[in-house]
Design a protein around this nucleic acid. Structure first.
Length: 370
DNA sequence: AACGCGTGGGC
DNA sequence: TGCCCAAGCGT
């Protein structure tokens, strides 16, 4: 099966690190989270946003996020709901709550300054092995190689690790540590990642453009298109349900705060959207005259597909519907449509609202990018 | 260790 | 269109 990486091959790769560094510095992209000198908080914020979210999406949202929360203290003082609202549409919302907890931990444990030690970084909420190494290398020049999916794939090909899944793993991190060197750690960390993102792509790698082509075992053996082996695709469950859109006085909408754990945890949505894949159908939240909205909203999650009908009702009388004074921690509440931008809404919720004729403005972003 | 957790873009 | 995938983490 997979031969262990040889000391010779590691030495060959290390000897080519200057070429990798030169390649990176020659084609460095103008990414909004790369500033000189690096701001450790900005680096940490960007790396958490980049966890499983594509760089173009983060590029579009990072400047507003940093402007809204320029320091750990600013984020800690803004409160969890403000962070969650600013995160609207980015997905994996646990990251937003962990980020808020992370800002508080930086304030309490480290006097408001991002720590430079990988171990201290990894102890922060939402910061795992990759993010800790990335911040340590990029923001502080620590001689570590952060291993993300890109770097894992590059290593599997460079060392022709046929039986190795191309995901960050303790074994690949150990290999990365043996390839690391003390000089230019920040640029080298980014070089490995950029190489995977732009050249050593998942499919059809551009080996002719690769600064490491001459030392790549997969290339030498003609395996560059067959490594890494594709991972099996997990099943995706299909869930049918009905969501309920209740309007009052033309300017209030009935919403619900979801429980903090699980799917879309802590976000605001419409009653009837399943709280979990196996949750049964929910009864209407009000005994009123519901009318089906024609069509269906189909939304695909990583492990779940929802097909949602929408029931709509208009209730009259301000005595039956009063706007909540503030966003509640749980349960149903009425909210002015004009103030939807203040709420942490998932993309699914925006689509349901739009299907019912309500288009909320972007949540939590700066009012204007001008 | 495997699974739960969003979303949007590329092809 | 449907499928693949993305600068992972927590449990």
């Amino acid at each position: 099966m997979t031969a262990a990486p040889s000391a010779d091959q590691i030495a060959r790769v290390r000897a080519h690190l200057p070429a990798l560094l030169a390649w990176y510095r020659g084609r460095r992209r103008d990414l909004p989270w790369r500033a000189a000198p690096p701001d450790p908080w900005a680096v940490l914020l960007s790396e958490i946003m980049l966890q499983q979210t594509t760089a173009p999406v983060v590029a579009a949202r990072f400047p507003d996020m940093l402007a809204r929360f320029p320091t750990p203290q600013a984020m800690a003082e803004a409160g969890e709901d403000a962070v969650l609202a600013a995160w609207s549409g980015l997905g994996y919302y646990r990251r937003a709550r962990a980020l808020f907890a992370c800002a508080r931990a930086i304030l309490e444990r480290h006097g408001g300054r991002v720590p430079d030690d990988p171990q201290a970084l990894a102890a922060l909420p939402g910061v795992g092995p990759y993010t800790a190494a990335a911040v340590a290398a990029i923001a502080f020049g620590r001689p570590v190689v952060p291993v993300d999916g890109n770097v894992a794939r590059v290593l599997v090909r460079l060392f022709a690790l046929g039986g190795e899944p191309a995901r960050p793993s303790p074994r690949l991190r150990e290999l990365a540590a043996r390839v690391a060197r003390a000089e230019d750690a920040g640029d080298l960390a980014q070089a490995w990642i950029e190489l995977g993102a732009l050249v050593c792509r998942p499919r059809r790698p551009l080996c002719g453009d690769c600064p490491l082509e001459q030392v790549c075992l997969a290339r030498a053996r003609g395996l560059e298109d067959r490594l890494p082996a594709p991972a099996p695709r997990p099943e995706r469950r299909l869930v049918h349900a009905s969501a309920f859109l209740a309007l009052a006085d033309g300017d209030l909408v009935l919403l619900r705060r979801r429980p903090r754990g699980g799917l879309l945890g802590g976000l605001v949505d419409l009653p009837g959207v399943p709280l979990a894949p196996d949750a049964g159908p929910e009864p209407p939240p009000l005994a009123v005259d519901w009318r089906p909205v024609p069509g269906e909203v189909r939304h695909v999650f990583t492990h779940l597909e929802m097909r949602l009908r929408l029931e709509r009702a208009v209730v009259d009388g301000p005595e039956t519907a009063r706007p909540a004074p503030e966003l509640p921690a749980a349960g149903l509440f009425w909210w002015p449509i004009a103030e939807l931008a203040a709420l942490p809404l998932a993309s699914l919720t925006r689509r349901l609202l739009a299907h019912g004729g309500i288009v909320p403005p972007p949540s939590g972003r700066q009012a204007s990018a001008r």
